[in-house]
Simulated assay, not measured.
Amino acid sequence: MNLRLSRVTVRRKSAEVTGSSRSVTAPVRETLALVLDENAPALDSDRDIDDIVLRLRGHLTELGHAAPDPPRPVIEKALRAARKLADVDVPTGHVKARVHLRQLAEAVKLVITELASVGAVCGHRPECPSAENHDFQAAQIRVRRPEIGCSELCNGVLVFDDTGCLLPSGEVVAPQRSMPLVETGPKAVTS
């Protein structure tokens, strides 16, 4: 498998997603698919394995920045375990290297799962648009609050029953109400 072509595709796709912490998972999931999906092409060379390990190390750095502050113990534990695997040199021998790569990929997948469980990253597929994206209201509802007339979306946007929104940045988006239809009867013909 030639990962150089694959690398260009991953960069192009991740550039399409805007820069919020929720968009961090898209390229990570693509890299994990190269390792964990049964239908993924086999990694034929040690160079391919080294390339994927380097990608996963970079992804771990980005995921660490997406962690909530103050850090949650379960997330810290998952990050620590994944970083420990990432810091180990890739073993020599193709089979040992593949086993190490799979263990690292599983550890990174656990980090994403833990971050998604606390809402630090989006766990939906396809990933919800970020609050900075033009279609931010397409995100899934995380919490409904009917008692106060709003819902919190996965991207942190509050959507009110009157269709107004409050973005995580504090910006207010006015309600998007359509004009009411005025019923008109048949026009009288005057002569």
Rank of each mutant, 00 (worst) to 15 (best):
M1F: 02
M1Y: 06
N2E: 08
L3E: 04
S6V: 11
V8R: 14
V8E: 14
K13L: 15
E16V: 09
E16M: 11
V17Y: 14
T18H: 14
S21G: 11
T25M: 10
V28N: 08
R29P: 01
E30N: 05
L32G: 02
L32D: 09
L32Q: 10
L36A: 04
L36R: 13
A40Q: 12
L43A: 09
R47I: 01
D48S: 13
D48A: 09
I49L: 10
I49P: 00
D50I: 14
D51G: 08
I52P: 00
L56Q: 07
R57P: 00
L60D: 03
A67P: 00
P68S: 03
R72T: 09
P73W: 12
I75P: 01
I75S: 04
I75Q: 01
K77I: 01
K77F: 03
L79P: 02
L79Q: 05
A81P: 13
A81T: 06
R83Q: 14
K84S: 05
D87R: 04
T92I: 01
V95Y: 00
V95P: 11
L101Q: 08
A105L: 15
E106A: 13
V108Y: 13
V108E: 07
K109Q: 10
K109P: 00
L110K: 06
L110H: 06
V111K: 07
I112N: 01
E114A: 06
L115D: 03
A116V: 01
A116Q: 03
S117I: 07
V121T: 09
V121Q: 00
P126D: 09
E127H: 10
S130T: 08
A131E: 04
N133S: 15
H134W: 08
Q137N: 12
A138G: 14
E147S: 13
E147G: 15
E147A: 14
G156E: 10
V157W: 10
L158F: 06
L158M: 13
L158T: 05
F160C: 12
T163L: 15
S169V: 02
S169E: 04
V172M: 10
V172Q: 06
V173P: 00
A174M: 10
P180R: 02
L181S: 09
V182T: 06
E183W: 04
G185E: 08
V189N: 07
S191R: 13
S191I: 03
